[in-house]
Amino acid sequence: MKKNILIVDDSESIREVVSIALQSEGYNVFTGIDGQDGLKVLLENTNVNLIISDLNMPNMNGISFLKEVRKIDKYKYLPILILTTESQEAKKLEAKQEGATGWIIKPFVKDKLLAVVKKVIR
């Protein structure tokens, strides 16, 4: 069964890079342009297996998004990876506190991204 991955990032470039990398590995990809949109896409699709979300986003930032997702019963245990930069050590820990499964540090190469994804879903 193809795994469904939701990518939430306000940057089109990042969404595209991540989507193409994941699609090339046979994942199904949905995208959201910020937390609010991500939440909407999440609720519209029946079965999301993983969320990859940015932290810094307009409308609803990554941390609030994370909190909202964890409020949904069905997605209480859903793996969520956050996109973060080296400089955001504190953010990383905050996200972890709020229930993020792990993180991907920007910039990253395709192999690194796929390796991290494989760490949380199979």
Binding site: Y77, P79, I80, G99, A100, T101, K118, V120
Partner: peptide
């Protein structure tokens, strides 16, 4: 551990 979506079996497999 499960609360943040971690599956420990994947880690063991790694």
């Amino acid at each position: 551990l499960f609360l943040d979506g971690t599956n420990p079996l994947f880690l063991i497999a790694d």
